[in-house]
Design a protein around this nucleic acid. Structure first.
Lengths: 109, 109
DNA sequence: ATATTTTATCGTAATATAGCGATATTACAA
DNA sequence: TTGTAATATCGCTATATTACGATAAAATAT
């Protein structure tokens, strides 16, 4: 049927999948890389940098933002985006734990 | 148009996106968790464990395998899957570097 | 109020993904 | 060779994703 059956999986598996989805598109990876560089950048600048249209860039920004990884702030007419350092750290830990946990189970054999 | 424009992004961004895609579905996360537990398990057992049909499970296994994260080996009529520890380590490092690199750029400001 | 600038949303089209039943393939056993 | 068991592939449907042009909304400046 084509709908992911979230309910049959653990909270943790769903959480990891949700956050991995942020990074599962190269445009979003590029956006995060660029925002890391400039610290507080405009949608328009990002759009130019990654060479995607303004609407497409804005949509990707919303996806990352909905997951809680981005902060944004209006200054004048422009909206400045930056990475939420706390959330970024949490995200890193989640992935780290998953990798380590999987490794530790492997090495028991 | 709806096709991801891989060519406008860096190799690195594409690589991260490709590997994140493996984890972007909770069924695949659950499969990896389970394989870590049993170390050499059958498609059928995985299918029962994660409560998805055998064809669906097999397809997810192929996705993970194509990315190089799974090894498989026939013993009799059964195919035993296990995680490629080397590749798993590489994957972890790629993510780790990406997270750290992004953080270090943030802290410079 | 009007114009300008920046970002967000809407509508739409093309492609990708997730899932399953039916069937094919593969390997062993009798 | 025939049967059985395990896995892979095919064909299909439903939903999700990616992208863009057009347009709306928000904020400032004139």
């Amino acid at each position: 049927m084509g709908v992911t059956k979230r309910h049959i999986h653990s909270m943790r598996a769903n959480q990891i999948a949700d956050l991995a989805k942020i990074l599962s598109n190269p445009a979003r990876v590029a956006i995060i890389e660029y925002i890391g560089d400039c610290d507080g950048c405009l949608c328009q600048d990002i759009s130019e940098k990654i060479r995607l249209s303004q609407p497409t860039t804005s949509q990707h920004l919303q996806v990352i933002k909905r997951a809680g990884v981005l902060k944004s702030q209006f200054k004048g007419k422009a909206q400045y985006y930056s990475i939420d350092a706390r959330k970024w750290e949490q995200l890193q830990e989640l992935f780290y734990d998953f990798f380590e946990h999987t490794k530790s189970k492997m090495s028991e054999k």
